[in-house]
């Protein structure tokens, strides 16, 4: 058993994703680094880090809660970061069209994120995300779809609110409702994970291939039941915290800014 931090792995799918999204940035910015590129690529590298690091390894083989961290970071941190990092001044037609689309149909963004989130947690689907064997170099097309859809959904979700075209952002009151209902959407999933019996995901009951089970159980004190509870609570509380903080920012924009000082 090697120390945990050496368990990096090189997933081909992730690298393809990275390249695809980098190319996307280039396409929208006319292949020039513009203001905000740091954020965009920061978000993208965060994705890389999440997908290749030992955290991902833990999520794949031992801990639902580790998997959940990756899931949440991809959806709620990487996605919005990349969106904010999109070239603001760009008058690329695509950005306008997408902004207009999400201004008219904000709920599509909502649906994409919540839908993706729920879809990947249906037990049968969940099991299929993980490749049967773990090698250092691998490509697993469902895992590729998984990460890709999370990133994309993260971007779509935040688009109505953080749209690069300022005048096409939704009005703050709708924004609050939008974020709050999203919070409910993921709360319910979190709630179910928290209070469901720990046998929900059979995946983590497979053999202890790398010999970490004992370490996790005794020195980290995370039992199977606790792990699923933790995962559920992460989906629930920190996730909602992000949504609700967003809502509070919208309130701030709406009320505090134009207050008479």
């Amino acid at each position: 058993m090697e120390p945990l931090f050496t368990y990096w792995h090189f997933d081909l799918g992730t690298v393809i994703l990275f390249l695809l999204f980098s190319w996307g940035y280039g396409y929208l910015s006319g292949f020039k680094l513009q203001k905000g590129a740091g954020l965009y690529f920061g978000g993208l590298s965060l994705m890389l880090l999440m997908e290749l690091s030992p955290l991902h390894f833990l999520g794949m083989h031992y801990l639902l809660s580790a998997y959940m961290i990756v899931h949440i970071v991809l959806l709620l941190i990487c996605g919005p970061l990349m969106l904010i990092g999109l070239p603001r001044s760009s008058d690329h037609r695509l950005i306008w069209q997408v902004s207009r689309f999400f201004n008219y149909w904000p709920w599509m963004g909502w649906l994409s994120a919540i839908g993706v989130m729920w879809f990947w947690h249906i037990p049968a689907v969940f099991e299929s995300v993980f490749p049967a064997d773990h090698t250092v170099f691998s490509f697993h097309w469902i895992a590729f779809l998984h990460s890709g859809s999370l990133l994309l959904a993260g971007i779509c979700f935040s688009w109505p609110i953080l749209s690069p075209v300022r005048e096409l952002q939704v009005n703050p009151l709708l924004g609050i409702v939008y974020l709050f209902t999203a919070c409910i959407g993921c709360s319910i999933l979190g709630l179910l994970l928290t209070f469901a019996p720990p046998t929900l995901y059979k995946h983590y009951f497979m053999t202890d291939e790398f010999g970490f089970a004992e370490l996790i159980k005794t020195s980290w004190g995370i039992s199977r039941a606790k792990d699923q509870q933790l995962a559920g609570l992460m989906m629930w509380v920190p996730c909602c915290f992000i949504y609700l903080s967003g809502a509070m920012v919208m309130v701030y924009k709406m009320l505090v800014k134009d207050e008479r000082v």
Binding site: I176, M248, V251, L255, V256, K257
Partner: peptide
Amino acid sequence: GYGFVVGSGIAIALL
């Protein structure tokens, strides 16, 4: 602090 009074109301409702 009108904004804070209203905002805290919204925060209470959300939480």
